[in-house]
Design a protein around this nucleic acid. Sequence first.
DNA 1: TTCTTGTCACCTAGGTGTTAATAT
DNA 2: ATATTAACACCTAGGTGACAAGAA
Lengths: 220, 220
Amino acid sequence: TAQLEMKSLWDEFDELGTEMIVTKAGRRMFPTFQVRLYGLDPMADYMLMMDFVPCDDKRYRYSFHSSSWVVAGKADPYMPGRIHVHPDSPGKGSQWMKQIVSFDKLKLTNNQMDDNGHIILNSMHKFQPRFHIVYVNPKGDDCSKTENHRTFVFAETKFMAVTAYQNHRITQLKIASNPFAKGFRDVEPNDCMVEVLSHLNPCGGPSRNNHRPSSLQIIN
Amino acid sequence: TAQLEMKSLWDEFDELGTEMIVTKAGRRMFPTFQVRLYGLDPMADYMLMMDFVPCDDKRYRYSFHSSSWVVAGKADPYMPGRIHVHPDSPGKGSQWMKQIVSFDKLKLTNNQMDDNGHIILNSMHKFQPRFHIVYVNPKGDDCSKTENHRTFVFAETKFMAVTAYQNHRITQLKIASNPFAKGFRDVEPNDCMVEVLSHLNPCGGPSRNNHRPSSLQIIN
DNA sequence: TTCTTGTCACCTAGGTGTTAATAT
DNA sequence: ATATTAACACCTAGGTGACAAGAA
């Protein structure tokens, strides 16, 4: 069995409509897809992997008027998606279970010609990440004889691929929760941010920010 | 078989008498111990590891008068050294051979109570790094039946463990060749440095350095 | 109009030797 | 005297959204 890490953060994003940036060079996901595993055979070898499937065959655009995503036609053609194999694969069950498994090396791109092994997604399309555990048979590899593959889908991790954020509330939640975006935080985390930052370091301290004026800014 | 990477850089250090810093928190080696492997069974599993053995049972001190290391007594007691297992272990022969194997996660410490898994060394003692390839038998693990272990020693990688550099020429060579010490370079790499920097980026460009006056400094 | 691209300041994270203070 | 420690400025390396310019 597999349990999604940071589920409450994923839920917050999902309620707003998660967006993930795709770039030519490849962009990491945030939140990062992380799972905790239970019930594996400690001695057996497993491959862990992820892929992404379209949620529907529609293309979307963001309506700033209604602050929501609206259908903008039929989906662009989608090749059978690439599979991202966790770099620690193959590994023993005991190894995978003794700590959280993090897919932080996985990157998303919109470059159909990508040769860096990144996951290729169509922008303005909706995707569902999937997580796979594959049991590696040591020798007698009788294909399709035993159940050797298991797939997990966490609905709260679905997202819209974008080249630039559309929903401003998503942008703000990313800035508030992603440590690498700390440079864009305008105010110190206080009362009104508690529910957002409770997933992370609760004592983040004030941020310094010189790129834009702000009356609440703390300069030190 | 195994081939030492950056051998010419190791040789330069060895001629001066290599020194490696040990700290309580753990310090990486520089140069990093890296090898290129050949002749492994592509399908077989191997563990790759390193350990460190004393070169002698002496304790040294650096004589600034003679600019050399002199014996300063008998060696401090030395526990059987820890073994550093390469984090990609176990891995298939094909994996190990398709790229340089780098022990850049290995750290040296002088803290006898270290619980971070770092290599514990006595300061002011001389050590010889060793590299081991261990063949992992899949099932019938009859111990000491077949030769399943191989050790490589590169004499040019021996070094003195220190808490602070003693030989100033070693300090200068570290600064000139370690990218992380670029902040201490006083002059741009030019003609007289070619043989040192030929192992690294030959077009390093000038460095900016404000912590000490220098008539040759380039400010931009 | 709508979407994409490239550059940038600002971060996180962590590897350097220096230096002054401390220990032995 | 000699050896060790801890804080520090200065790097490498790379992950952020903002922004202006470009493309469709």
